[in-house]
């Protein structure tokens, strides 16, 4: 559905997007992840034909953005970071205007407007002035605007930025519901959002794609070794952390033990295994045999956050991106 090949966008002094390539299949939700200023918005603007690329190619629904912009624009719905709203218009008036602008025939307009305002939960404010709406409603009107012409591709630039937690959940649900009918690219710098809504992640940093993979693959590939959180306490009296640490280090398959905290006599450790070893049963046995209480024992999954930091801050980024290509 979307094919980007060696895309480069250069501004006067800076390179915003540098040789980016990726593909998105029909019906997928793809998360575009990166810190602020990584080039997410620029890439999206190229895809929506707002900016022309400096080099490389981008194709949406089989049409090249540079050569057939009108065809691309007909098939794309775009919600920029700040929803493009006219405060002096009523919601229904605005949706009518956008609908006409996107080329919906007059006869179908009323029906489409009704449909999207129900889908995006803005039907109850349809006769209110946009300037008087709350931020959550504005965001939803923005989303309604993006889907009004039933586009094949939906491009959402930080759709949950600035919303309160309840609105964020609602917006995510809405986006999930839209998948299937539409191919969606959404950008964000919030990691849990990607974990919750997207099937595929494209991590971008300083204008370059650092990794492209499904959420699960990315987590497991980077994990490699298992990391386990352990909490123990003595049956009675004091338990020196050093004793526990030494004992845990002797468990076969353990590569590293880190002492975290002590609270109410409970000591917390983080244990890392060697590559490909399952150490949880061994740890449990070892702790119990020593006569201590085992309060907690669970694997610590690498969150996308850690993956992200790993990929964007260390020299591992080169290996990781090499592995994906």
């Amino acid at each position: 559905m979307i094919r980007v090949q060696d895309l480069t966008k250069r501004y006067a002094r800076t390179v915003a997007v540098d040789n980016v390539s990726f593909e998105v299949e029909k019906g997928q939700i793809v998360g575009f992840l990166g810190p602020n200023g990584a080039g997410k918005t620029t890439t999206m603007r190229v895809l929506t034909c707002f900016l022309p690329p400096t080099g490389g190619e981008a194709e949406v629904a089989g049409f090249n953005v540079a050569q057939k912009p009108m065809e691309v624009k007909k098939r794309i719905g775009y919600l920029p970071e700040t929803p493009p709203l006219y405060p002096e218009m009523e919601v229904i008036e605005y949706l009518n205007f956008v609908g006409r602008l996107k080329g919906i025939p007059k006869a179908q307009l009323a029906e489409r407007v009704k449909e999207v305002s129900e889908r995006c939960n803005v039907a109850d404010v349809s006769t209110k002035l946009i300037g008087k709406l709350s931020k959550g409603y504005r965001q939803r009107v923005g989303l309604a605007q993006a889907i009004i012409h039933n586009p094949d591709v939906l491009i959402l630039d930080e759709p949950t930025a600035g919303l309160d937690p309840k609105q964020i959940i609602e917006t995510r649900e809405l986006i999930k519901n839209l998948a299937g009918d539409h191919t969606i690219i959404l950008s964000t710098h919030i990691l849990p959002e990607v974990e919750q809504t997207c099937e595929k992640v494209i991590i971008i940093n300083k204008g370059k794609v650092v990794a492209t993979d499904s959420v699960e693959n990315l987590t497991s590939r980077l994990r490699g070794s298992e990391s386990v959180a352990v909490e123990v306490s003595a049956k009675d009296g004091e338990l020196p952390a050093q004793n526990v640490q030494q004992r845990l280090e002797q468990v076969p398959g353990v590569s590293r033990v880190v002492y975290r905290t002590a609270r109410d006599g409970k000591l917390r450790f983080e244990v890392e295994s060697l590559q490909g070893r399952h150490i949880r049963p061994e740890i449990a046995r070892s702790v119990v045999e020593a006569g201590w209480n085992l309060h907690e024992l669970h694997p610590v999954a690498f969150s996308l956050e850690e993956i992200f930091l790993e990929l964007t801050s260390s020299d591992k980024s080169a290996q990781a991106s090499g592995a994906t290509q």
Binding site: R45, T48, C49, F50, M70, K73, K74, I76, Y78, P80, E81, T82, P84, L85, Y86, P87, V98, L101, K102, G103, Q145
Partner: peptide, 14 residues
């Protein structure tokens, strides 16, 4: 200023 130019420029209008 308000960013609505992005709406116009990304709509199928010349």
């Amino acid at each position: 200023r308000s960013g609505t130019i992005e709406l116009l420029a990304t709509s199928p209008v010349r």
